[in-house]
């Protein structure tokens, strides 16, 4: 990750442990690439499995609209489908 410096004090983007691997599956690579930018993808695993597919859609929309995630429509759709299949309450064994 690139360090983000600015202002009078330096706050580097941090080195951290590798996240828990995301489950293999269609859309998994897009999730790994896009959902590790502003936080570890452990945020996904931590929030499983109790969200519905709609709640995951709302989360991805929030990341784009409230937090400025640069994820295009098609990629967002693929990630939502991946989260619904692997991390939603419906996918719970």
């Amino acid at each position: 990750m690139l360090a983000v410096f600015g202002g009078v004090v330096g706050c580097g983007a941090m080195a951290a442990d590798a996240p828990v691997p995301l489950r293999p599956g269609a859309g998994g690579e897009a999730a790994r690439a896009n959902c590790n930018v502003c936080h570890t993808s452990d945020y996904i695993v931590m929030n499983s499995r109790f969200l519905t597919a709609d709640a995951w859609r709302a989360e991805v929309t929030k990341m784009r609209e409230a937090f400025g995630a640069r994820i295009d429509e098609a990629t967002a759709g693929a990630i939502i489908a991946y989260l619904a299949a692997n991390y939603s309450v419906a996918g719970k064994p």
Partner: peptide, 11 residues
């Protein structure tokens, strides 16, 4: 505070 977002679009 001093903490900063990873990308510009995050408030």
């Amino acid at each position: 505070g001093a903490d900063k977002p990873a990308v510009e679009g995050t408030p």
